[in-house]
């Protein structure tokens, strides 16, 4: 479907490079004209003085933040911009509070960086063609006005827990003596050197079943990597490739099962995004010709990057209660 109208898209990010990237992506979408703002204040001026049809904003900026902009839009505080425009917000960090607020204010999409040009284009086209059902403007205005709510929606401070995480850390085990600690440290270093993908020690997604599948996936991809770079016999490489793909399938399968039975919506919103990004890599791993050495290396790099992204979300503090379900 082609967008024929001249759609004004406001992109907001306080990092110039990122803002320019967003600006370039939006201007390539048929029918869209991008306007860029490098902070929330400039963005608020555009929203108040021009009719904006779509808002794409980063969250973490000096006041007003991206989330505050979204709240003001939904509350009808901007005279020129309708309250029901699509809003896409994104961030490098995904805190539970922020996701909850995004849901409360019916933000159309919450994206976690990195965002590709193709991914963002698809999101823009989707949200311009699919209208989200919103509550009346007064509902959002009431939310903003509610002092208790306002207190509850403060962005996390240094003293508060990082409450949403793909991975969170558990307390370090207490070694009885220095020798034990040193031995453990050496073993860990040795293990990390050997493995291509490493599941951080004492880390958990909050689901032991998922942790196990993640570890299994990391192990099998590492095995594939090792036999490939060591130039082992093709039959060994094929065998490890098959195991790695199976491990990925198990991961997809167990994720789907737990997701159906669990209501940690914020977690699954993020984790599903990560799985969606993994799908094409696994498909490629399944079909790639192992004789094409450079292509396999590129794919391995992509898998390593995916792994790094997935295992490096903000960590929850040690004293958080873990959410575990037993579905196996």
């Amino acid at each position: 479907m082609t967008l024929t109208r001249n759609i004004h898209v406001l992109v907001v990010d306080d990092v110039i490079l990122m803002c320019d990237f967003l600006y370039g992506v939006v201007n390539k979408v048929a029918g869209c004209r991008a306007i860029k703002a490098l902070d929330g204040k400039a963005a608020a001026e555009y929203l108040g003085n021009e009719r904006i049809d779509l808002l794409i904003t980063d969250i973490e900026m000096k006041a007003p933040s991206g989330l505050e902009l979204a709240q003001r839009v939904r509350s009808g505080m901007f005279s020129q911009t309708p309250y029901d425009i699509p809003i896409i917000i994104f961030s490098g960090n995904a805190y539970r509070e922020v996701i909850e607020q995004s849901i409360a204010f019916d933000v159309n999409d919450f994206l976690v960086k990195p965002i590709t040009s193709a991914g963002l284009t698809a999101k823009i086209q989707y949200h311009l063609q699919h209208k989200k059902v919103l509550k009346p403007m007064s509902h959002y205005a009431q939310l903003v006005a509610d002092v208790d709510y306002a207190k509850a929606i403060e962005l996390p401070t240094e003293d508060r827990a990082f409450s949403v995480a793909i991975v969170r850390e558990l307390p370090e085990p207490k070694a009885d003596d220095v020798d034990q600690r040193e031995a453990a440290s050496k073993a860990k270093e040795k293990k990390e050197k050997k493995e291509f993908l490493v599941w951080p020690e004492h880390a958990t997604t909050g689901y032991f079943q998922l942790d196990r599948r993640m570890r299994n996936f990391a192990f099998n991809v590492s095995c594939f990597h090792n036999v490939f770079v060591e130039n082992c016999k093709p039959v060994a490489i094929e065998s490890e490739r098959k195991r790695a793909c199976e491990a990925a399938d198990y991961l997809f399968h167990i994720s789907k099962n737990i997701k159906q039975k669990d209501n940690r919506r914020d977690f699954w919103l993020l984790f599903q995004q990560r799985l969606d990004k993994l799908q094409p890599h696994v498909k490629e791993l399944n079909s790639i010709n192992i004789k094409h050495h450079s292509q396999v290396l590129v794919l391995l790099k992509r898998l390593a990057y995916w792994w790094m992204q997935t295992c490096s979300r903000p960590l929850i503090q040690i004293n958080e209660v873990t959410h575990e379900t037993a579905d196996e």
């Binding site: 965002i115 040009s117 880390a203 790099k301 990057y305």
Partner: peptide, 22 residues
């Protein structure tokens, strides 16, 4: 989490993927 030193310094494949243009 990976140690920074164990990762590639600059991976242009990522840049190309991000911008959708090589």
């Amino acid at each position: 989490m990976n140690k920074p030193a164990s990762l590639v310094v600059l991976d242009l494949a990522i840049l190309i993927d991000m911008y959708g243009d090589d």
